[in-house]
């Protein structure tokens, strides 16, 4: 709202979703708001046309609708023209748990990340969301913002500072490096606490940016940790886990092994709320801890031979 008040170039387009959430915006800035109807392809094309005429356009919808439904418009229209369009997804991961797989956004990060020009953001809480939204507004070109559903707990209780593409250290030191992207951060925080209570020291970074990725941070953690663990409410293919695997595979120095936590295979077709599905798919704090300990028990004896420092 602050951004739209200060900058009349900003426009918000919705594909007929955002009941109540968008009402204040629509009422306050009627000339900057447009409900295009249930038509995401047209929404994205119109957003491109507006952006090419100098507008800064946010497209808004839930789950896979603002991305997969109109993927080619994003690729050919938004990205190829480097149009100033910010795609906002509400309900990343299992937010809409009981509604079924149509509403589970579990491949969106992978698909957006592979598009040229696209900058990809999945903030971990409201504080991160505020900051990356402003950064996306201030940075020309296509951005994807993958958000939760609202009402998630605040994790950063003190002001945080990070720049474009940087990871955020919540706990910078530890043997096991936990990396989290998006709203699953709360479970990463809890898992880390459980690990510490069981005598396993763990660092934790939130990575609100998947593109650009904080390469320096990843290489440092790979060099100095026993184990790197990625945590995301998303397929382990192509998202945070995939991105980190790509970086570490090309990293030439000695490096810690990698564990990717997320949706492993098949559709998330179990029925239940977000917490239930996180548990089922190995993303509850307890499940994260179990998996980390399991892998540590396998790699620990070889740690020194791999050149990983204590």
């Amino acid at each position: 709202m602050d951004i739209a008040r200060q900058d009349k170039r900003v426009m918000l387009l919705t594909g007929d979703l955002g009941f109540k959430v968008l009402t204040p915006f629509a009422a306050t800035f009627p000339d900057q708001f447009l409900n295009v109807g249930v038509a995401e392809q047209n929404m994205t094309g119109v957003a491109t046309g507006l952006a090419l005429e100098g507008k800064i356009v946010f497209t808004y919808s839930i789950g896979n609708f603002p991305t997969l439904r109109c993927l080619e418009q994003i690729r050919n229209d938004v990205c190829y023209h480097n149009a100033n369009v910010k795609i906002v997804c509400i309900g990343g991961g299992f937010c809409y748990g009981p509604l079924g797989i149509s509403h589970h956004a579990t491949e969106d990060l992978a698909i957006m990340r592979v598009l040229p020009q696209m900058q990809v953001m999945a903030p971990g809480d409201l504080t991160e969301t505020r900051l990356v939204t402003r950064m996306a507004y201030e940075t020309h070109g296509p951005c994807y913002l993958r958000l939760g559903r609202g009402g998630e707990p605040d994790i950063h209780l003190k002001p945080i500072h990070f720049s474009w593409g940087q990871g955020i250290p919540l706990f910078p030191q530890g043997d096991v490096a936990l990396l989290s992207t998006g709203g699953i951060l709360i479970n990463a925080v809890r898992a880390r606490e459980m690990l510490e209570n069981q005598g396993i020291s763990a660092s934790l970074h939130s990575l609100p940016f998947l593109q650009p990725l904080d390469m320096g941070l990843l290489e440092e953690l790979a060099r100095t940790s026993r184990l790197v663990v990625t945590i995301e409410e998303h397929s382990i293919i192509g998202g945070l886990g995939g991105a980190v695997a790509e970086v570490l595979a090309e990293f030439l120095g000695p490096k810690a092994p990698l564990v990717r936590l997320g949706l492993r295979e098949g559709f998330s077709c179990e029925v239940g709320d977000q917490e239930y599905l996180r548990e089922i798919y190995g993303l509850s704090p307890g499940a994260i801890v179990r998996r980390v300990k399991e892998v540590l028990s396998i790699i620990q004896p070889e740690a020194k031979n791999n050149g990983v420092s204590d």
Partner: peptide, 9 residues
């Protein structure tokens, strides 16, 4: 669609 966006602007 893109033309419609330009026309809307």
């Amino acid at each position: 669609s893109v033309g419609a966006g330009m026309a809307y602007a």
